[in-house]
Design a protein around this nucleic acid. Structure first.
Length: 576
RNA sequence: UGCCCGAUGGUGUAACUGGCAACACAUCUGAUUCUGGAUCAGAAGAGUCCAGGUUCGAUCCCUGGUCGGGCAACCA
């Protein structure tokens, strides 16, 4: 009976697995498939990624980029890049360039479809006039304080503006004079005439245009009135032929307004649809632009691309690959519920990718000198070692071995337990790609307790790869040859915050949770000599330590590596 | 206390639109290993927020709650 039940269960699991792999769609894909079935919008799928150029892209944006470009690819459609640049007081060219670079780096391309909402200012202006002519918009002479007072609260209806009943002629005249620059900033706005008592705050006569005598990155000083987001986004989608306008949850309450403008301004059988999904939250970090900006401006990190930042440029500098980020985006899925993804999943994604791609090399972070007493004093032996056991196609290289080497301080213990597989008095270990050595003696600073040096003997019959090397020992250590090794700076990065949700604590500033050990730079790191001619961005696995990449600060006289992520480490886990 | 949205193992996402819950990460075994990595095999872990209802049968449909999130910028 029991056996049957188990057997049934297993069989079912396999069936479901196959089923899932080709029929499991997220809710947006379901909507699209339904639309396609109904030949909605002539069966087109056209998405867009619409960043505001007021900050750097982060991993949350990467999720959205993968979604939008991914959907377009999946359904043989297109995805545009559109800068949502309707507020010249906050937006900068620097951000535009970084955004373009980051999206390309992630592996996506919009061909010739790079747009700016500011491309549509002329059309938007005409549409505003049309609304006025139809009695659906009016000029309000009040300042923002008065308007917001009249707006009411979510539970109390608003009051109508005293200017709401202005004649169409007067509204038109005033709007054109606003456009002509006759009025100072903040003196007047154009508002939609909808419903001041609407339970949806966004429908209480939202502001459409404000006066801003500020030159714009793309339109120069052509305009001194600028449209608001709500009056811009849906119409821009329409102008670009967007079919599925995907945004995050906080815009859900804007959707009725999005639709209201389209209702007023367009007709025909094509219309874009706004769909909202839940933004990404990652544990042990913050994702809001405001907080990231604060970290940058107040010097908690070295910049937007500090390797500890969850920005795309930070992750790139940290050593993440575009593939690993795309795979991550795939794995986290798309839904509408609030979520906090475990950073461990992001870390898993890089390890998975780098495991296949990164050449293995030897580096010692905290060197402990080892003298191989029975190895000839001036001899250097060239040992052959594979570059990546996961991929023999990556070839082999030579490793110099000599009488004095360095191993990791953590790889020796004076009084080790039986579960410790490394070096201790009288113990044997294998040196990776070299010989088995035995610890015969050690020198200790009796005052500090520090181990200064180890004296070992090697067994010449145990050379890696040789016919006589069959002897087995439990532990294998990485090492570098003392006289051949190169000094390097190695930056050991860890998570930026100690708390899983630093931004989610009421009455506590997120900066209180900053991890003081998010960056450690040990003093005397040594790497094997084959690393002499590396390039910025090159990625390696430092054997037994983790994945590292060459930082942009690296020069040939002073190599600099960033730790992307450690290897999984069951030993470290056992000792917690 | 108005409107909108959400609720499935520790985390995230599924479940062919009604047939008693799957996958990934994390966790834990064991095998294997010249990386305490990788790989392989396996285990544990939710009975789907609660209460009613419809139905032969509900994670899925209906009703009412509860809890969480969003909405009051001339920001996006």
């Amino acid at each position: 009976m029991k056996i049957t039940a188990t057997g049934t269960k297993e069989k079912k699991g396999v069936e479901n697995k196959n089923l899932n792999s080709d029929t499991s769609l997220n809710f947006i894909q379901n909507i699209i498939e339904e639309d396609l079935k109904n030949n909605k919008n002539q069966g087109r799928v056209h998405t867009r990624f619409p960043p505001e150029p007021n900050g750097y892209l982060h991993i949350g944006h990467a999720k959205s980029i993968c979604l939008n470009f991914g959907l377009a690819k999946q359904y043989n459609g297109l995805c545009n890049l559109r800068f949502d640049d309707t507020n010249p007081t906050k937006e900068e060219e620097e951000y535009i360039n970084s955004i373009i670079e980051d999206i390309h780096w992630l592996g996506f391309d919009w061909e010739d479809r790079l747009y700016y909402a500011s491309d549509y200012f002329e059309q938007l202006y005409k549409w505003a006039i049309k609304l006025i002519e139809n009695g659906k918009a009016y000029i309000d002479d009040q300042d923002s304080e008065q308007i917001s007072e009249q707006k009411g609260t979510p539970t109390k209806p608003g009051k109508e503006s005293p200017y709401r009943k202005r004649s169409i002629e007067e509204n038109l005249d005033l709007f054109m004079r606003m456009h002509a620059g006759e009025f100072p900033d903040g003196s007047r706005v154009l508002r939609a005439k909808i419903d001041m008592a609407s339970p949806n705050m966004h429908l209480r006569d939202p502001v459409l245009y404000r006066i801003l005598h500020t030159p714009h990155n793309h339109t120069g000083d052509k305009w001194c009135i600028y449209p608001m987001y709500d009056f811009t986004h849906g119409q821009s989608d329409y102008l670009e032929g967007i079919t599925h306008s995907i945004c995050t949850l906080e815009f859900e309450v804007h959707r009725p307004l999005y639709d209201w403008f389209l209702d007023q301004l367009i007709n025909g059988n094509y219309r874009p649809q706004q769909i909202e999904f839940a933004r990404l939250n990652l544990s042990y970090t913050v994702m809001s632009k405001r907080m990231l900006l604060e970290l940058v401006e107040q010097g908690y990190v070295t910049g937007w691309n500090d390797p500890r930042m969850p920005t795309v440029s930070g992750l790139r500098r940290r050593g993440y690959t575009p593939e690993s980020i795309r795979n991550f985006a795939e794995k986290i899925g798309i839904a509408k519920r609030e979520n906090i993804i475990d950073v461990a999943l992001l870390e898993h994604s890089v390890r998975e990718d780098l495991n296949k791609k990164a050449p293995r090399v030897m580096a010692v972070l905290n060197p402990l000198k080892v003298v191989i007493t029975n190895f000839p004093e001036d001899k250097t032996e060239e040992l052959e070692t594979e570059n990546n056991p996961e991929d023999p196609g990556m070839g082999t290289r030579k490793l110099p071995f000599s009488r004095e080497i360095y191993i990791e301080q953590e790889d020796f213990m004076e009084n080790p337990s039986r579960k410790y597989f490394r070096l201790g008095p009288g113990r044997e270990v294998r040196l990776k790609s070299a010989y088995i050595i035995k610890c015969e003696n050690y020198i200790k600073n009796e005052k500090t307790g520090e181990i200064i040096e180890l004296h070992c003997t090697y067994d010449p019959d145990t050379k890696s790869g040789s016919a006589t090397s069959q002897r087995k020992v439990k532990g294998t250590l990485h090492w570098v040859s003392a006289k051949h090794a190169i000094r390097a700076e190695v930056r050991l990065y860890d998570r930026l915050f100690n708390d899983e949700d630093p931004a989610g604590k009421k009455d506590r500033d997120f900066k209180e949770f900053l991890n003081p050990d998010s960056l450690k730079i040990p003093d005397n790191c040594l790497v094997e000599p084959s690393l002499k001619n590396i390039k910025h961005g090159d990625k390696f696995q430092f054997q037994r330590l983790g994945y590292f990449c060459v930082d942009q600060d690296s020069i040939s006289d002073k190599l600099v590596f960033n730790r992307t992520v450690t290897l999984r480490n069951t030993w470290a886990k056992m000792n917690k």
